[in-house]
C-alpha cells in the first residue's frame, strides 16, 4: 500500500466491535485498519455476517468501536462530542441504503430536503438546493410526486439526490443496487461513479456484488471480522493477510 501525499480522508486503526455478552458474544470486527484516500472509490466486500456492514457503520460514525479509532482528516473522532459527530455526519456524509428509507407519504422534494431540514437550512434555500440536486439527477419533473409512486430505480436516484443535497465529501452506499434489477442497477452505478469522478466525492460502497466491486478503484475483502484481501481494481492483484 502506497502512502498518499495528503492525509487520508478517513483512517481506521485497529477497530474492534462485538455484540452481545457471554455465550452470545459475537465479534463482528476483530482488528481492522484501513485508509481511504480523498476522491477514491472503495468497495468493502464480504459475505453476509462477515462484518462489512459493521465496518461501514463505524467508518460512517453511526456507531462507536469497542477499541481502536476512526480519524477524519487526521483527527480522532472518538473524543468528539455527540453534537460534533452529528454535525460531521450531517455536513460531510451522504448515505445511500439498499432499502431506500424514503418517507412514503411525503413528496420527492421533501424527502430530498431531509438532510437540509436536519441541518436547519431555511425553507426557501432548502427548496432551491433540493430542486437543483433533483435537476442534476434528471428528477426535476418528479419533485412534486409522492415517493411511493416512483419505480425502484427512480427511488434509488431520489435516495442519491438526498445523499448529495448537503454537498458531502463522502458517500456511504450500503448495497446501493441490491434492490434493483440489473439494468437499473447499472444506471445507478453509472450515476454514483460519475458523481465520484465529477465532484471528487469519496465513495465507500458495501456490497457482495462482484461486478459493482470491480468498478471501484480499490476493494477490501472482509471475512470473520478481519480484512482478508485488498486489491487495486486496475492491478487486480490480491494480497493476502492484511489482518492477523
Amino acid at each position: 500500500m502506497t502512502n498518499p501525499p495528503a492525509p487520508p480522508v478517513l483512517r481506521a486503526v485497529d477497530l474492534t466491535r462485538s455484540y452481545g455478552k457471554g455465550q452470545a458474544r459475537f465479534d463482528a470486527l476483530r482488528g481492522v485498519s484501513l485508509e481511504i484516500r480523498r476522491g477514491e472509490s472503495l468497495a468493502i466486500v464480504g459475505k453476509s455476517g462477515s462484518g462489512k456492514s459493521t465496518l461501514m457503520h463505524l467508518l460512517a460514525l453511526l456507531d462507536r468501536p469497542d477499541s481502536g479509532r476512526v480519524e477524519i482528516d487526521g483527527q480522532d473522532v472518538g473524543a468528539a462530542s455527540a453534537p460534533a459527530v452529528n454535525r460531521l455526519r450531517n455536513e460531510r456524509f451522504g448515505f445511500v441504503f439498499q432499502q431506500f428509507f424514503l418517507t412514503a407519504g411525503q413528496t420527492v422534494l421533501e424527502n430530498v430536503s431531509l438532510p437540509l431540514v436536519v441541518a436547519g437550512v431555511a425553507p426557501r434555500e432548502r427548496r432551491r438546493r433540493a430542486l437543483a440536486t433533483l435537476d442534476a439527477l434528471g428528477l426535476a419533473d418528479k419533485a412534486g410526486n409522492k415517493a411511493n409512486d416512483l419505480s425502484g430505480g427512480q427511488k434509488q436516484r431520489v435516495v442519491i439526490a438526498r445523499a448529495l443535497v448537503n454537498e458531502p465529501d463522502l458517500i456511504f452506499a450500503d448495497e446501493p443496487t441490491g434492490n434493483l434489477d440489473t439494468a437499473t442497477g447499472h444506471q445507478v452505478e453509472d450515476l454514483l461513479f460519475g458523481l465520484q469522478r465529477e465532484r471528487g466525492i469519496t465513495l465507500v460502497v458495501v456490497t457482495h456484488d462482484e461486478e459493482l466491486a470491480a468498478r471501484c478503484d480499490r476493494r477490501i475483502t472482509i471475512a470473520d471480522g478481519l480484512i482478508v484481501g485488498e486489491s487495486d481494481a486496475a492491478a487486480s492483484v490480491i494480497s493476502e493477510g492484511a489482518g492477523r
Binding site: 455527540a82 453534537p83 450531517n90 455536513e91 448515505f95 428509507f101 436536519v118
Partner: peptide, 16 residues
C-alpha cells in the same frame, strides 16, 4: 422507527 434511524444517521440530535 426507520425514519427516526434515518434522521439520526443524518445528524439529527436526540434532543430534536
Amino acid at each position: 422507527t426507520r425514519e427516526i434511524g434515518l434522521m439520526k444517521a443524518m445528524g439529527m440530535s436526540n434532543g430534536r
